[in-house]
Amino acid sequence: MNEIPVVAHKCKNCGKIHYPFHDRCMNCKAREFEATKLEGNAKLLTFTQIFNLPWGFDQRFLIIGVAEFENGVKAMGQIAADSIDGLSLGMKMKALWKPVRVQAGEKVYGLMFEPIQ
């Protein structure tokens, strides 16, 4: 598995985890953060199957969801599945770093969640 370069930001003062980046802590307004990697598997918090995709996507649909990692980081990503039939709230997902779209002819990488059977 490729190393996932997503970095979350843990407030050095109060410990609140932020993702994406904020210049001041949402909780205590402190400005120093410790870079935090995504840890372990993730729990699926919500998901949807989107049709009518924006410009730049040629496929019929995308499945997208938000998941929470074991260290509390919450992040959006695409979900690798043929349909949403097998997905349920709270299920365990494995996170991968995969191409999620193509921009200007180049692959753009991002989070890809895979259901753990």
Partner: peptide
């Protein structure tokens, strides 16, 4: 970047 839309 994930292709999320407002309907999404």
């Amino acid at each position: 970047i994930y292709g999320v839309t407002l309907p999404g």
